[in-house]
Design a binder for these strands. Structure first.
Lengths: 184, 184
DNA sequence: CATCTTGTTCATAGATGACTGAACAACGCG
DNA sequence: CGCGTTGTTCAGTCATCTATGAACAAGATG
């Protein structure tokens, strides 16, 4: 049946999206669920999602709750079993993840580096043996700071307001990449 | 003892680097080992690395072999137990990882999307019911293409040749981030 | 009210991956 | 040639994470 063929193709897309997003700190199931709901023309119930993706309802239950929490899925209607639709402008969520997780990682490295540099320079003045390369530590420190600058820029990127946000944002991003090519 | 204090600080840096790099497709142990060897002023034997980081020699053996394979560590001397020094310009390795892994992920998504779009458009012409939103599929397809353009740019970024490559590259990157801020 | 469907919770199975320790191999050195 | 040191290999442990199915709760529907 033609509908089956369409569904099979889209499930393949969902799985590709899941694999992709798995690298970016989310779970694969998040990518699969969001993609399916985003691409399906009508709002979907959890049972439909589970059947289409071929996984258990319990797995979907948790994943949907988390996606709603992230602001990437939204129930359409108020009653208990309201079906879900996808929120298309996912940039705020990405930015949030960048802010919390990646920032913490960089900040942790930066603080540790500063501590190590202080310790080594203290040894330098007191004439004790310096075991580590202070120059390189300072280079790595500068690297974390460049990373944090870059993160700040990405976090600050605003989604355009108004109707078809995602399409507009995509056009923006595309133009930006073009300019970037000329810079490099 | 002062040397102990320095070492403890640096091990903290190694652990922070490990946590950070874990998000980027490498193993945490790679980050820890490379950072330690990079920051230590003299080449290190595997035994020293294991003792300093507080892990088994077997773990270090595998990690070092992989890092040498990546081109991030290099034995200094030719004899069997030659100690290791760090290769500082790691950009070629990052670019390689981006090329292989991230590219494959994007490419998989792109191919799956094209298949799904074809299937849906075929249903459209034959007058069969179209279950999915072709417009959104095309938007996601455009997104993968923007992603691939960005990847191509990053992969193409060349490390400067000559003496202190890492410092120069860092300066380049820093300037680039500054320009990027003005673009956004 | 009884029943059916839908979503949630939880204990658990299964897979994956990091890490260890012991056994082993390859030297350098007395 | 033994002996000690260093690196490698491998089986097995432990923790983590995904996913399941059964039991349960909350409505809808008859």
């Amino acid at each position: 049946m033609a509908a089956d063929r369409q569904t099979r193709r889209v499930v393949q897309v969902c799985e590709a999206a899941g694999r992709f997003i798995e690298y970016w700190g989310f779970k694969a199931i998040h990518g699969r669920v969001w993609t399916l709901v985003a691409l399906r023309a009508v709002p979907l119930s959890q049972t439909e999602i589970a059947q289409t993706l071929g996984v258990s309802r319990s797995l979907i239950s948790g994943a949907v709750a988390e996606l709603v929490d992230y602001g990437l899925l939204r129930p359409v209607g108020t009653h208990r079993n309201a079906p879900y639709e996808a929120v298309m402008d996912f940039w705020p969520t990405i930015a949030d993840v960048l802010r919390t997780r990646e920032w913490m990682l960089l900040e942790g490295a930066r603080v540790a580096l500063e501590g190590a540099i202080d310790e080594a320079e203290y040894a330098q003045v007191t004439g004790e043996p310096v075991l580590f390369d202070v120059e390189r530590m300072k280079l790595l420190l500068a690297l974390t700071e460049v990373g944090q600058s870059l993160l700040r820029i990405l976090i600050g990127m605003r989604m355009p307001r108004g109707g078809e946000r995602f399409a507009t944002w995509l056009k923006n991003a595309s133009g930006l990449v073009g300019k970037l090519r000329r810079l490099v």
